[in-house]
Amino acid sequence: MKQTKQLTIIIEREGDGYVSLCPELDIASQGDTVEEAKSNLIEALELFFETANNSEIERRLNNEVFVQQVEVKIG
Rank of each mutant, 00 (worst) to 15 (best):
T4S: 08
V70C: 12
G31Q: 05
D16Y: 03
I9T: 10
L25S: 01
L45C: 04
A44G: 11
N40Q: 11
L41M: 14
I27F: 02
A28R: 03
T33P: 02
P23I: 00
L45W: 00
K5H: 05
R59H: 01
V19I: 14
E14D: 08
E14I: 03
E35P: 04
F49K: 10
K5L: 11
F48K: 07
L61F: 07
T8S: 15
I10A: 12
R59E: 09
Q69R: 15
E64G: 06
A28P: 00
L45T: 08
E14Q: 09
I9V: 09
K38P: 08
S29H: 01
T4G: 08
D26I: 03
K5G: 09
E71Y: 15
R13T: 11
Q69V: 15
S55C: 04
V19R: 13
F49S: 06
T51K: 12
S55A: 10
I42C: 12
Q6Y: 04
D16R: 12
A37I: 03
V19N: 04
N40I: 07
R13I: 04
L45E: 08
Q68H: 14
K73H: 11
P23M: 00
E50Y: 01
L21S: 01
I10M: 12
M1P: 01
E43C: 14
E12W: 00
K73I: 07
N54E: 09
A28K: 05
V72K: 12
L47K: 12
L7V: 03
S20M: 03
V34A: 00
T51C: 13
N53M: 06
G31I: 01
Y18G: 05
Y18T: 07
K5V: 12
I10W: 02
G17H: 01
Q69M: 15
L47A: 13
K5A: 11
F48I: 04
S20A: 11
Q30T: 00
K73N: 14
E46R: 08
E35R: 09
K2A: 13
E56W: 03
E14A: 09
S55F: 08
G75W: 15
I74M: 15
C22V: 03
Q3I: 00
E50I: 01
E36D: 06
G31R: 05
K2N: 12
I57F: 10
A52S: 05
I42Q: 14
E35W: 10
E71V: 13
L61K: 10
D16W: 07
K38E: 13
E58L: 07
E36S: 11
R59T: 05
L47H: 09
L7Q: 07
P23N: 01
R59Y: 06
N53R: 06
T33F: 03
G31H: 05
E24C: 02
K38L: 10
L47P: 09
G15Q: 05
L21I: 07
